[in-house]
């Protein structure tokens, strides 16, 4: 199947991606920043009234049991899915080719599939001060009871639209437009300086 592989993707962060410890890390690194580079990032949208059928398709194709409800989400390490708007979901896979897996399953009667694998950049922030740094960026509540594990949120930072999924008790995955990703990354690094950060 090698002839069907997508071209190798270059990271938009590359010129500003500097592995190692930075900022005030003398007393330890309190957040870890990384680019997760998933092979597939899809946007699924259900027509009104077809949401439950789409959630069932996600379960069949990915094995993920997507909770029905605003911002509900789930992840298993390799794959993740979350609602980001009424009837709309982001589905992510470490591997390429998830769009092909969905292609026959999302019929025109259910909704639509948009492959954003090359259009979004996924940034992970993890560590004891992840909530603190995120709270400086986004005007939403990052406390665990308000933003449960697996849940998704749509918001923005200085007009850079961001979808955020909580992928751990102290870990968030942020999906931003690829064209804005380097600017966002630089800002996130600056915001992380005060707590000490490591780029992995």
């Amino acid at each position: 199947m090698a002839e069907h592989q997508l071209p190798e993707r270059q990271s938009p962060l590359e010129p500003e991606y500097h592995p190692g410890s930075h900022g005030n890390f003398e007393h330890g690194v309190d957040v870890i920043l990384s680019e997760t580079r998933p092979g597939s990032i899809l946007q699924l949208a259900a027509w009104a009234g077809e949401e439950k059928r789409l959630i069932e398709v996600v379960r069949k194709v990915t094995g993920l049991a997507l909770p029905d409800g605003a911002g509900g989400g789930v992840g298993n390490g390799a794959r993740a899915a979350f609602g980001f708007a009424p009837g709309k979901f982001t589905v992510v896979d470490e591997a390429e080719g998830l769009a092909q897996a969905f292609a026959g399953a999302i019929t025109p009667a259910i909704g639509t599939l948009t492959d954003l694998s090359h259009g979004r950049t996924a940034i992970r922030i993890a560590g004891p001060k992840a909530e603190w740094v995120m709270a400086k960026f986004f005007a939403i509540d990052f406390a665990l009871p308000a933003f449960p594990l697996g849940a998704g949120r749509s918001t923005n930072h200085h007009d850079i639209f961001a979808q955020i999924q909580r992928s751990g008790a102290d870990q968030f995955d942020i999906y931003v437009f690829r064209s804005f990703a380097r600017s966002f990354w630089k800002a996130l690094c600056h915001a992380s300086e005060e707590v000490g950060y490591e780029v992995q």
Partner: peptide, 12 residues
């Protein structure tokens, strides 16, 4: 927002 919950007016 009925979907997102309370948000600052700057998002609207």
């Amino acid at each position: 927002c009925p979907y997102c919950g309370p948000r600052d007016v700057i998002e609207f």
